[in-house]
Design a protein around this nucleic acid. Structure first.
Length: 614
RNA sequence: GCGGUGGUAGCUCAGCUGGAUAGAGCAUCGGUUUUCUAAACCGAUGGUCGCGAGUUCGAGUCUCGCCCACCGCGCCA
């Protein structure tokens, strides 16, 4: 599989110690039950006296509910390699399982030799009691990236241009990844790598100096800058004296000409202000906006370091400074061009400088760059080069991940455009999402006051756009469909938000708080099929979280939330919550509270807002 | 030409890195409410996992070959 996948991190001694302490039985449930089982199975293999027990990998997976909660597949591979009977091996291991595991799980050997584990109702309840708040969930999850710093580079629009639909996926997926990494313990640095430098600024300054409309700049600066760029571009055809003039403006800017630098700064400022209006609606706030211009004075060091090693990593070819990778079938001939023949830098130079800055200045343990799949070659070459360069200079090497995603297309499968063929501006798209959501809310719930319907429309409309992107595997193209993303059935934001709203509704009706520990204290043991099915789903949140974070694919979390909302709806339909018997009512309120906690926590991790009524 | 990503039910998509009888939603058909939001739930119909070989206890998943779509491949990012 070509998409980047984080290597399993070696646990630090500190983490190993933490895991030992966290290992426990049913009384004090540990966060990640599958990880508990993995350790218990390894210990059992050793205790059972299996030959070569250290080589036994349990391969614990979340199971189909009809088979249990978790299954260990590792016995099959282990037995096969040693020509043993897999069921006999499974039996030996199962018989040596520690008492805590036997207390918490029923287990059975099934099929060719799987060991299936099903949590007992008391163990389910113990887990739900242990993880009663978002903080508890976070501290349970935080071991994965504790003590690490991750820099995430996403959104990254060009200044002096409006954000359009092509910027949506990077922003939405990038923000979700930031939140996942932060929740699992990392210090996350959100870095907006703006396209704020390059030849287009010569043409823009040329247009600005001739045709700028100050009134238009005051009302909608970006719109006016786009108009001026188009004018400037049209007025400077190849070979024309006007183009020469535009180039002189660019050279003046690059040489620090005060007037042009001031103009460029103004362009950046108004652009950032316009971007922030979009980011506010998407719940995004960057820590840094270190665009390409920031690295202007940092590329000389790159050229020097890439050429001073023996043998040099970079070489001159056709006047340009390039890096070849002789061991690579394609990049041995397809150059990585780090300095143009005219001596100017390009995106390869600044990206190399960026990787170094993030390593040295931010002390990054991991760097994630979120761009569309068309840049895959560039980043593969970039990372290959960084690895060799850092090794040659003995720099510490962070994990490097290029997170790619497919195109957003219309229902015809072609790039998404307006009817007139223009790109769709992100502002207009978000406006339309809210308008459509408002129409639906007003139809479904006309009695709510209009300000509340507006607020609901904001949350549902924007959430629908975000979730449509996040619910699907990011590597495939995604077909933009208002009807599908705003549908109330299926894996959509409205369906999930509706489940959240219904749970809030029950607590309103009961005049109770989801945070009240009294429900847990008064709860009797889980009994009905729907209660148990729901609880079994709730305890698998850690698995979904880990999968989404390890693969940097948020849709795994989305899929889990959808399944959880479905199990909740079934429970809600089968078992009335507000019954008279206090102990039954309390345990069902407990399930409602934990479902609410998990759905809200999960949706917030994906960058969505939630509602109490809709 | 080389490479990347896709190809799974009529449509839109999952499929946890090789595991059990391939799953959801939409659509179609049928059912459920004097009950906490029916914006819901339950059931049925629907599959040559693009095609063909191979690897092995086991392949949608791995290997090889082919077909189709989108995309990338020297001075844009």
């Amino acid at each position: 599989m070509p998409s980047p996948r984080p290597a399993r991190r070696k646990p630090t001694p500190r983490l190993r110690a933490a895991r030992r302490i966290r290992f426990s039985g049913a009384m004090h449930a540990s966060f990640h039950l599958a990880a508990d089982l993995d350790r218990a199975l390894r210990a059992a293999a050793a205790a059972a006296g299996l030959a070569d027990a250290a080589a036994f990998a349990p391969e614990v997976r979340v199971a189909d509910p009809k088979h249990g909660d978790f299954q260990a597949n590792g016995t099959l591979g282990y037995a096969k390699a040693r020509k043993l009977n897999p069921r006999a091996v499974a039996d030996q291991i199962a018989n040596a399982l520690p008492a805590e595991v036997r207390a918490a799980f029923d287990h059975v050997i099934a099929g060719p030799g799987f060991i299936n584990f099903t949590l007992k109702p008391a163990a389910l309840l113990a887990w739900l009691n242990s993880f009663a708040t978002a903080d508890r969930l976070r501290s349970g999850a935080s071991a994965a990236h504790a003590g690490q710093t991750w820099v995430v580079d996403y959104s990254s629009p060009n200044t002096a241009k409006q954000m359009h639909v092509g910027h949506l996926r990077s922003a939405v997926i990038g923000e979700a990844i930031c939140r996942l990494l932060a929740f699992t313990g990392a210090r996350v640095i959100r870095d907006n790598h703006l396209g704020d430098w390059g030849t287009q600024f010569g043409k823009l300054i040329y247009g600005y100096k001739r045709w700028a409309d100050q009134a238009a700049l005051a009302t909608d600066a970006i719109e006016e800058l786009e108009r001026l760029y188009k004018l400037g571009n049209a007025a400077t055809p190849d070979g024309s004296p006007e183009l020469e003039e535009a180039r002189r403006e660019l050279v003046a800017l690059q040489n620090g000409d005060a007037a042009n630098v001031a103009l460029w700064q103004k362009f950046s400022e108004v652009s950032l202000a316009a971007f922030q209006q979009i980011y506010d609606r998407l719940g995004i706030r960057f820590d840094h906006n270190l665009g390409e211009s920031f690295y202007n004075d940092k590329v000389e060091r790159i050229y020097r370091e890439l050429t001073e090693t023996t043998p040099p990593l970079a070489q001159i070819s056709e006047g340009a400074l390039v890096v070849f990778h002789p061991e690579h079938p394609r990049f041995k001939t397809q150059p990585f061009l780090v300095r143009k023949a005219d001596g100017a830098s390009n995106y390869a130079s600044t990206d190399l400088a960026t990787a170094l800055y993030r390593t040295e200045h931010f002390k990054a343990d991991g760097i994630v760059v979120v761009t569309d799949f068309r840049q895959a070659d560039h980043f593969e070459q970039l990372f290959l080069t960084v690895r060799k360069w850092f090794a040659a200079k003995s720099y510490r090497l962070p994990e490097l991940h290029h997170v790619t995603f497919g195109a957003v297309t219309g229902e015809d499968g072609k790039a998404l455009k307006t009817r007139s063929g223009d790109v769709i501006k992100l502002k207009a798209l978000l406006d339309e999402a809210e308008d459509r959501a408002f129409a639906i809310v007003s139809e479904k719930n006309p009695d709510l006051p209009e300000p509340e319907r507006r607020e609901i429309a904001r949350t549902v409309g924007i959430g629908a756009v975000q979730y449509a992107d996040l619910s699907q595997n990011r590597s495939s193209n995604y077909i933009f469909s208002w009807d599908k993303m705003l549908a109330l059935d299926g894996n959509t934001a409205p369906y999930l938000l509706y489940a959240v709203a219904r749970i809030h509704s029950i607590f309103r009706k009961a005049a109770a708080s989801p945070h009240d520990p009294a429900h847990a204290a008064a709860a009797s043991g889980l009994e009905t099929a729907a209660e148990i099915l729901l609880a079994r789903k709730l305890v698998k949140f850690p698995d979904a979280l880990r999968l989404a974070t390890d693969t940097l694919r948020p849709h795994f979390l989305g899929l889990y939330l959808f399944e959880l909302a479905g199990d909740y709806s079934s429970f809600n339909n089968a078992d009335k919550v507000l019954v008279d018997e206090p102990a039954v009512r309390a345990r069902r309120l407990l399930l409602c509270a934990r479902t609410l906690l998990t759905l809200e926590t999960g949706l917030h991790l994906l960058g969505l807002r939630t509602l109490t009524r809709m």
